[in-house]
Amino acid sequence: MIQPVFLFIEQGRALEASDAVIALARHLNGIARLAPALRFVPKPLRDAAYGLIARNRYRIFGKSKTCIAPTAEQRDRFVL
């Protein structure tokens, strides 16, 4: 089975898994802005925690019956 990959591209670099989450969190507000402090945790541990959360995301965060349709401005930010 092919595992989905979360990629975040910042300054021309493609980041994945916990590195992507940490980079993305720098652009968010609220408590998420604390996530960059996790970069001091060893990468194998961060990636293991990321994998655990990713595999259980619906149990942790719930599942919506509908998807948000991005606006034209937001659509330009996606790679298809």
Rank of each mutant, 00 (worst) to 15 (best):
I2L: 11
Q3S: 12
Q3F: 10
Q3A: 15
Q3H: 13
P4R: 15
P4I: 08
V5M: 10
F6R: 00
F6Q: 04
L7W: 03
F8S: 03
F8H: 13
F8Y: 13
I9F: 08
I9R: 11
G12S: 10
G12P: 07
A14I: 08
A14P: 03
A14C: 11
L15I: 11
E16I: 01
E16K: 10
A17H: 13
S18C: 01
S18W: 00
V21M: 12
V21Y: 00
I22Q: 02
A23T: 15
L24Y: 03
R26L: 01
R26A: 12
L28T: 09
L28H: 14
N29C: 06
G30R: 07
I31C: 05
A32N: 14
A32W: 04
R33T: 15
R33P: 00
L34I: 04
L34V: 09
A35Q: 00
P36M: 08
P36T: 04
A37G: 08
L38G: 06
R39Y: 00
R39Q: 14
R39W: 00
F40C: 11
P42K: 05
P44R: 04
P44N: 11
L45T: 10
R46P: 00
R46C: 07
R46V: 12
D47M: 06
D47Y: 01
A48E: 12
A48R: 13
A49L: 13
A49D: 08
G51Y: 07
G51M: 07
I53S: 02
A54C: 05
R57L: 14
R57S: 14
I60A: 04
F61M: 12
G62K: 00
G62S: 06
K63W: 05
S64F: 02
S64P: 00
S64I: 01
K65S: 15
K65H: 14
C67Y: 06
C67I: 04
I68H: 09
A69Q: 13
A69K: 13
A69L: 14
T71A: 07
A72G: 03
A72D: 15
R75E: 13
R75V: 12
V79W: 10
